[in-house]
Design a protein around this nucleic acid. Structure first.
Lengths: 207, 207
DNA sequence: TAGATTGTTAATCGATTAACAATC
DNA sequence: TAGATTGTTAATCGATTAACAATC
């Protein structure tokens, strides 16, 4: 039903609403949210109608109610626990990323093959990869972030899914495909930069 | 003409071709590339035709030639130099990300407001933010990565564009809009995770 | 009531896919 | 030549936008 772009817009509306909340706004119009998210007002109302979110024909939407409904859709009602596989350069940054805590996301632990990186008393702890399945099951965790080198990514994905993980965000520079029953999203830094380079060049050449 | 999705597919084709090259493949069919990139063969041929890339009606495409043409489109022919603004948690990881060097991308320097983080002799060096404009001009750099806290991002974008930067990849958790004449792409970790959470839940509920 | 905004339907737009003549 | 694959056109599909009746 809803596609990736739609859900990304929902996140943007939610972020805009949080700012309005701190400013004590009570009501908001589709037009305002459209401006904040860089889309059209029709798009905003269409997105809401997809999820059965309704407002008031004259008075727009109540900020509090709308925020609650979007938060529910995006899973912000409960703490979302992730495990992180690969505590290298990028993994370490994610393990200590301060933005997660503020937004109801928690990395329960990092996992590594390299014993030098073990740190069972860290916050979050870094544990041996072989403990992953047990940890994930005992804590009922279904989400993972993969940040291992490219050559290890495919194999790690197998381990992670075998451990019972349902959703993966992959930072390894290789496009992982999601087998049946799982969701895998890829963030490829090199690809993002190539994209930027292309459009800067295209722009310079007057397209 | 070409949109973001199209260019991202081009990056994938290019990555697949690099692997084929190491395996000494000489020719490749649209069908093979389609499998590698997870799209249809018609999509591959359509993408190529957008850029005037042609093959052989019977023998597919020559791996070397095709790789050269894609590399040219994606700016892989020369070293692409970036500056990085914000050497915090995420910035530090990007500053030392080993994947960049391998792919013709170089971070020329990091810039910071916090003097504690200055490190003029580092590789790459970390310099005072006030030196940004001078550095960028003397080195003719047009690309930047922003990795500062949310409250600083908008102001930093202003500085960066004033310094002559044309393309920005933004990691700050706030959606920056590109003023005329510039390109700004956003990577929002929280949004990516919310997206994953939504689709995992939707999947579990049988959609 | 008059005016403004929603919710939804229909129209538009653009991207993907199918199909097939051209041709190596 | 016969067979296979491209390059491109036309058909399909889906997402965005415009428009407007419903209604607060």
């Amino acid at each position: 039903m809803a596609n990736r772009s739609c859900i990304i817009r929902l996140s943007r509306y939610k972020n805009a609403l949080n700012r309005l909340k701190t400013l004590n706004f009570v009501r908001v119009f589709s037009d305002n949210l459209a401006d904040a998210a860089g889309v059209t007002a029709a798009q905003v109302r269409k997105d809401f109608s997809l999820f059965g979110i309704t407002g008031n024909r004259r008075g727009g939407y109540k900020v509090d109610e709308l925020a609650d409904q979007l938060n529910k859709i995006l899973g912000k009602e409960q703490l979302q626990e992730f495990v992180l596989i690969g505590v290298g350069n990028m993994g370490r940054a994610l393990l200590h990323y301060p933005g997660f805590e503020r937004s109801g996301i928690s990395i329960a632990a990092g996992f590594e093959i390299d014993p030098v990186k073990y740190n069972p008393d860290g916050k979050p702890p870094v544990l041996p990869l072989e403990n992953l399945a047990e940890f994930v099951k005992s804590r009922n965790i279904t989400l993972a972030i993969i940040a291992v080198p490219d050559y290890a990514a495919q194999q790690v994905l197998g381990l992670v899914l075998a451990a019972g993980i349902k959703g993966v965000l992959n930072f390894a520079p290789i496009c992982l495909k999601a087998p049946n029953g799982s969701i895998v999203n890829n963030i490829n830094l090199e690809t993002e930069l190539e994209n930027l380079i292309y459009f800067v060049n295209a722009h310079e050449n007057g397209n």
